[in-house]
Nucleic acid binder design. Structure first.
Lengths: 155, 155
DNA sequence: CTGTGTGCAAAGCATTTGCACTATG
DNA sequence: CATAGTGCAAATGCTTTGCACACAG
């Protein structure tokens, strides 16, 4: 519940109500560092708040995505995944996605270089394509440590 | 049909047969610069090759993805999209994705800076996470020119 | 010939929608 | 109280599977 009041305000600012399902979902997301699918979230929540409906989870996540509170994570597994958006630059990160097991690993390295690159890219793209950049996404695909050990060259 | 023989070999190398559906799909992909969904591809193909089945399109695209011939494009619209993988650095590009209309715009700018950034990132990540990097993906999200003109601050 | 690839129809699942009901502000 | 939000069940729509047949090598 830390920051509950802050969230409450952020919802209000956006003509949205502060409800129990929203609080529970937000609370769960703020406690985990993982990229949860809608189903995951729903499953984790049923114990804490048995009455919640899957539909509500879907709608809440989409709402929070539209409001910019959460980020969709690209998982090529046919499920939508979300994570709370980074607060400031301290927690900014990107993903390593394993082509073997589908695992998603966070990394927070070389942030400075990235910022410079992104900044420059943003300027060029905005100028050239009249595109208003709101966000960016960088991901590396490959094989994680575990899979490298296990798999030799199967599948 | 340019490069048909090359593709034929690439399939053979991978213990896969060179068939009419595969040729037609590959041909279509090499003619377009767009990010086509499986349905798009299927639809475009029915005129050229009426007998083709949706299932075959799905299977062929997944096969070509596994073989590294095509790239999955992140579209947050619940449809799988593919594009032929870039040949060499000349055609390397990334995407601008419009949060308004969902359009995907290619850009090929500041490739040099990107390569440097990616290279450095790759080294660090490989060392730190024992992750074998095979590919990367960079995308910018925002509002495209059209949507900026149309929408003021609705939805 | 042998086994990979294809098409079709039937599942499988994640996500969305319609609607009556509840609870926030 | 007015209306945004919720839950359920039904409907969508993309993707996968099972199977008999076709065709590449």
């Amino acid at each position: 519940m830390p920051g509950r009041r802050k969230w409450q305000c952020r919802f209000r600012e956006n003509v949205s109500r502060w409800t129990v399902p929203r609080e529970v979902i937000l609370d769960l997301l703020s406690r985990t560092s993982k990229h949860m699918s809608t189903k995951d979230i729903y499953a984790s929540l049923t114990s804490l708040y048995p009455g919640i409906g899957l539909t509500t989870v879907y709608r809440t996540l989409e709402l929070m995505h539209r409001l910019g509170f959460v980020q969709k994570v690209t998982a090529h597994d046919g499920q939508r995944r979300y994570e709370l958006k980074d607060e400031g630059k301290r927690n900014h990160h990107h993903h390593l996605i394993c082509n073997g097991c589908g695992d998603i690993i966070d990394y927070r390295d070389f942030v400075q270089e990235e910022l410079e690159f992104i900044k420059k890219a943003g300027e060029v793209l905005t100028a050239k394509h009249s595109f208003l950049i709101q966000d960016h996404n960088i991901e590396f695909l490959g094989i994680c440590e575990k899979c490298r050990a296990t798999t030799r060259n199967s599948e």
